[in-house]
Design a protein around this nucleic acid. Structure first.
Lengths: 239, 239
DNA sequence: TCTCGTTGCGCACACTGTACGCAGAGCCGA
DNA sequence: TCGGCTCTGCGTACAGTGTGCGCAACGAGA
C-alpha cells in the first residue's frame, strides 16, 4: 500500500458527517470522568485515558474544558448535586439536617476520591449545585430559628464535621481499596502490627485490641454519635 | 577537551571522602521536603527538585525512602508533631481541648498542602507523632469523665470538625496563594461575580453582599463558634 | 589485600498535561 | 453555486514526572 495513496470515494472510507451529533460534549466528558474516578481513583484520571474512553484523542477534550483542574471542578459540582436535602420543615430541623448530613457522608464515601480533591477545591468556588445545596440548608437553619448570619455559622459547623469525617473515612477506604483486601481481612491482618506499635500508649493499645467486629457498622455509629453531639451543641443556641 | 579524558589526580578533581558524613539522611530529606512543601506547595514537590535542594540526584533519595508516598507520610507525621497538647487537667477539659484544637487548626493553615494530602493518608496510619497526639487527647477526655470508648468517639468528633474546617480554609488559602493577591483584594475583586452568581439564591446573595471587612478574623471567629458548639454537644454527655 | 555491604548517581522508560497548528465540516453572505 | 469563517477533533511535540536498574566509589572487616 503506497504511503501517499489517494482517498477512494466509497461508503466505507468516506468520513462520516461530523455534525450529526457533536460527538463530544461537556456533559458527556464530565459523566465519563466521574465514572473513571469512581472505578479507578483520582490518580488514574488522565486526559489520554479519558479521551480513549470517549473514542477521542486526549487533546480533543480541551475544546470543551479549559484545563484538567476545571474538569475536576465540574465533576465535583456534579457530585454535590447528589446530596439529598429535604424540604423545609421548621418544627423538625434536627431530622432534616440529619438526613442531609447522612446523605453527604454517603456521597463522600461513595466517591472516595472527593476527599483528596476537597483540599484543593474546597467549598469556595461557585458551582450551581453547591450553591443550591448551601441555599437550601441555610433555609433549613433559618426555619429552625437561627438568624441568617448564625445559620451560616451553623451550616459551616455541620459541613466541617461531615467533611472531616468523610475525609478520614474516604482515606481509609482508599488505602483499603489499594490493598485489594476486604475491610475485615485488612483489620485482622493489621491487628498484630497495630497492637505492637501501640504498646507504649495504653489507651490506644486498649482500643486497638478491643473487639473489632463489624468495623463498617462501627464507622457509621461513630458518624452518628458525632453528628448528634454537633446538633446538641447547635440546639443549645435555640434555647 | 577530549571526551575520554583521564581523571587527573589533584586536590580539586579527587573525589571527597564520602563517609565524612553520610551526606543524606532520612531526617534531612524529610525536613527539606517539609520546607519545600510549605514554600511552594504540594504539586511543586518532585523528587528531582528535592534532590537538587540537597545537592543530590533524584534517585539518591530512594536509598532512604521507599517511595514518594512514603516520604509524604513521614512529613505528615512530622507536622502532626507540631500540634500542641496541654497536660491533663481534669477540671478544665474544655479549655484544654480548645487549646489543642486551635493549635491543630493553626498547623493545618500553616501547612496548607496538608489538606490535599489528608484525603489520601488520613489518620489511619501508624506514625509515632499521630499516636502520641491521639493518646494524650484520649487521656484528656478520660480525665474529663468519658469512658474510654466514648472518649474515642469524642476525639473523632472534635478532630473531624478541625480537619473539615482546616481543609476548607486551606483550600481557600491555596487558591488564594495561586492568584498572588491578598485575601482582601481577592474578596473585593470577586464580589461582583459572586453577587451576580448568587442572585437566584436570596440567602447566599445576602451573605455575599454583606460587609466583608477583616475576612481573616471572620474565619477565626467561625472556627471558634463551631468548636464551642461541638464542645457544648459533648458537654451534654457529662451530665 | 581482597571482599562486602552501603551509598550516590546516570540512564532509561513509560507516562503526564497541554500549546500549537492543521484538516475537515457546516453555515452564511454574495 | 461559491468562497470565506467558525467550530471541532486530532497529531505532534515539549517539558516534566516517578522510579527500576546497574555501575562506581567508599569504609570496614577478614
Amino acid at each position: 500500500m503506497p504511503a501517499d495513496e489517494q482517498p477512494v470515494a466509497s461508503v466505507w472510507t468516506r468520513p462520516r458527517r461530523r455534525r450529526e451529533q457533536p460527538a463530544l460534549s461537556r456533559a458527556q466528558i464530565v459523566a465519563e470522568a466521574l465514572d473513571l474516578l469512581d472505578t479507578e481513583g483520582l490518580e488514574a484520571l488522565s486526559m489520554r485515558k479519558l479521551g480513549a474512553r470517549l473514542d477521542a484523542g486526549a487533546t480533543s477534550l480541551y475544546r470543551h474544558v479549559a484545563t484538567k483542574d476545571e474538569l475536576i471542578e465540574l465533576v465535583v459540582d456534579e457530585v454535590y448535586g447528589q446530596v439529598e436535602v429535604p424540604d423545609i420543615q421548621g418544627e423538625d430541623w434536627r431530622s432534616a439536617v440529619t438526613v442531609c448530613a447522612t446523605s453527604a457522608r454517603a456521597v463522600l464515601v461513595k466517591h472516595a476520591w472527593m476527599a483528596s480533591v476537597l483540599g484543593q477545591v474546597g467549598l469556595a468556588y461557585l458551582g450551581p449545585n453547591v450553591m443550591r445545596l448551601n441555599e437550601r440548608m441555610l433555609a433549613l437553619f433559618e426555619a429552625a430559628g437561627f438568624s441568617l448570619p448564625e445559620a451560616d455559622l451553623a451550616l459551616s459547623t455541620v459541613m466541617a464535621y461531615v467533611i472531616g469525617m468523610g475525609t478520614t473515612e474516604a482515606a481509609w477506604l482508599t488505602t483499603l481499596a489499594r490493598s485489594g483486601r476486604s475491610e475485615q481481612e485488612w483489620m485482622d491482618s493489621l491487628r498484630p502490627a497495630a497492637a505492637e506499635a501501640s504498646k507504649p500508649y495504653p489507651r490506644l493499645h486498649a482500643l486497638t485490641t478491643a473487639s473489632n467486629e463489624d468495623v463498617e457498622g462501627a464507622r457509621a455509629d461513630g458518624f452518628r454519635y458525632g453528628l448528634e453531639r454537633v446538633l446538641d451543641g447547635l440546639a443549645t443556641r435555640l434555647g
